[in-house]
Design a protein around this nucleic acid. Sequence first.
DNA 1: TGTCAAGGTTCTATTTTGGAACTGACGACG
DNA 2: CGTCGTCAGTTCCAAAATAGAACCTTGACA
Lengths: 160, 160
Amino acid sequence: MRWDALSKETCSVARAVSVIGDRWTLLILRDCFLRVRRFEVFQDRLGITRHILADRLRKLVKSGVLARAQYQSRPRRYEYRLTPKGLDLHPVLMSLVHWGDLHMAGRNGRPVLHRHTRCAHDFDPVLACSECGEAVTAKDVRVRPGPGASSDILPKELSS
Amino acid sequence: MRWDALSKETCSVARAVSVIGDRWTLLILRDCFLRVRRFEVFQDRLGITRHILADRLRKLVKSGVLARAQYQSRPRRYEYRLTPKGLDLHPVLMSLVHWGDLHMAGRNGRPVLHRHTRCAHDFDPVLACSECGEAVTAKDVRVRPGPGASSDILPKELSS
DNA sequence: TGTCAAGGTTCTATTTTGGAACTGACGACG
DNA sequence: CGTCGTCAGTTCCAAAATAGAACCTTGACA
C-alpha cells in the first residue's frame, strides 16, 4: 500500500495517518505547538536531515495543516504556522504527551508541565464525552457503522 | 537520528513516537481497538506485507503495548491483545479519529460512530482539563519545564 | 571583495519497505 | 496414504525512502 492510497481509505484514522502518520511529522507538529516556526530552528531541534524536513513541511502545507507565510522580503524568508486545521490536532498531541508521561517518562518525572490558563492549574488531559461530559475509557465505547461506512470498515464480529 | 535514539530523548512525545510513530503501527492499533487480534486478520484488513506486520507486532510486544498470548495448542497459535499500557492509547486514537472525521471525511460523513455506554449517546471526544473539567483548547495552555526537563526541551523563547 | 544567514536542493550510500514465494505444524478430506 | 487448507510466520530480491554531507541562491553587512 502506498502513502496516497491511504488517504483514499474510508477510515478516518487511515486518512489522518496519511497526513501525520510519520515519526518526523509528529515531531515537527510537537515543535509547532511550542511555537517553532522556522526551518533552521526545526532542523536544529530535531536533528532531521534538511531534505526530509523540506519534504515534510511541504506535505503539511499541501494538506492544510501548516501555512507557509513570508515574514520578510529582501531576502524573502518564510515561516510555517499551524492553520485552524493544524490547531485541531492539539488533542492528539496532548494525548500523546500524556501517554508518554505515564508510560515512558524517565525517573525524574515529566519533562514539560501544561498549565490551563482558565483555571490556573497544571493539568493532565482527560478524554471526555461531548454529550454527558464524563471521562471516557476504552471499555465505555461501542462502535458501529456510520453514514460514511464502507462494508469492510469493521471486522465481521462487530458489523452487526 | 535512528529509531532507538528517539526513545532516549527527554521529550514524552519523542518517546511515544518511538513506539507508535509509524503509519502501520497506528493502523494496527486502530484494529486492536476494534478487537482484531490475529495475524491473518490484521493482514487481510490492512494489506500490509507479512514481513512488516510481524516486525511491528514484535516491536509492540517488546514495548509492552500488546501481549502475545497462545489461544490454542496443536498447532500452537498466538494472538495479540492490548495490555493496560496499550489501552491507555485509547485517547490518542479517539482524538485521531475525531480529527479525521472533522477534516478528512468523505461527503457521506463519518464512517464509524462511537457510543458512550454510560450515557447511551453517540459522542465526540473532548479534551478536558483534569483540574477544572472544562474543555481545553490550544490557546488555553501554557507550557513550562517540568522536573524531568533537559535544557533543550523548549525553544529559547519559552524556557523562561 | 569576502563573509554570514536563512531556506532550501543535489548527490550518493544505507535502510526500510513492498511483493511474492516458501516453511512448518497441524486438521480434515477422500 | 496423499493432498488440501489454515495460521503464523520467514526468506528473498527489487524498489522506495532516509541519512549525511556538500552545494546553491538571495541578500545584508563590512
